[in-house]
Amino acid sequence: MQLRAPLFALALAVTAMGCQQPAFASEKPVSAPAASRVAKEGAGLKTAIFAGGCFWGVEGVFSHVKGVTSAVSGYHGGTKRSASYDLVSSGMTDHAEAVKITYDPKVIRYDQLLRIYFSVVADPTLKNRQGPDVGAHYRSAIVPLSGEQTAVAKAYIAQLSKAGLWNKPIVTAIERSSGFYPAETYHQDFMIKNPRHGYIRRWDAPKIAALKAMYPGVYSATFKRN
């Protein structure tokens, strides 16, 4: 998911290889079970951070979820000074491409967001990569912002591990919040602004289709713009 000319050419080459190599197959949706540990977060808007590969798709999925009031693409971890697309994409920082979500728990609970994440957003068995994107900045990670979110996330990962939905172990990490820095303006709402972009059509549009098919009750046809 690169934009600058040389890097974009490389991304296109990798994507082309992905059509031939099973290792780069598109993430398949998984029917994850409802969480046994239901989130109890009280009234008022809450925030959550998810990292799952390219932030375009993560933001795109959650922007189509009822109860989500905003989804901001950005960088979690590392330092503010190094929180730029060029540096993060180099793999030389500790950042992960991530999305900060603001949501109303009366409409969509944190445990339900986790279910969507594991079902259609990311393959939790892939370490430091998703789809055609490789590197620690594309890692799969959940960043709880409260004790309740931490408890729910740990319980849900344990539940999924016992369910045996994947042939490989879950490697999605629960990371301590260590700073979130919004990405450049051109990355925000990227999917809705660039529906014909090759990367969006190949890797991210199928995630929206899966969300709509699997969870019609929480799917919103309207894209929540920032």
Results as ranks from 00 to 15, higher is better:
4 R>T: 14
7 L>A: 15
9 A>N: 11
10 L>Y: 08
14 V>F: 07
16 A>E: 14
22 P>E: 11
25 A>W: 09
28 K>I: 07
28 K>S: 14
30 V>P: 03
34 A>L: 11
38 V>T: 14
41 E>Q: 15
42 G>T: 08
42 G>E: 11
46 K>E: 04
47 T>P: 00
48 A>D: 03
49 I>M: 09
50 F>K: 03
54 C>L: 07
54 C>G: 12
54 C>H: 11
57 G>W: 03
63 S>Y: 01
64 H>A: 02
66 K>E: 13
77 G>F: 09
81 R>W: 10
88 V>H: 09
91 G>K: 02
98 A>Y: 08
99 V>M: 03
104 D>F: 09
107 V>L: 12
117 Y>I: 03
126 L>P: 03
128 N>F: 03
132 P>Y: 05
132 P>N: 13
138 Y>S: 01
139 R>Y: 01
143 V>C: 10
144 P>V: 07
144 P>E: 00
163 A>T: 02
165 L>S: 09
165 L>F: 10
168 K>N: 12
171 V>I: 07
173 A>G: 01
174 I>C: 05
175 E>K: 12
179 G>N: 12
180 F>S: 10
188 Q>L: 06
189 D>G: 05
196 R>K: 15
198 G>S: 10
199 Y>L: 11
203 W>P: 08
204 D>F: 12
206 P>H: 11
215 Y>R: 05
217 G>L: 09
220 S>H: 07
222 T>I: 12
222 T>R: 14
226 N>Q: 14
226 N>S: 14
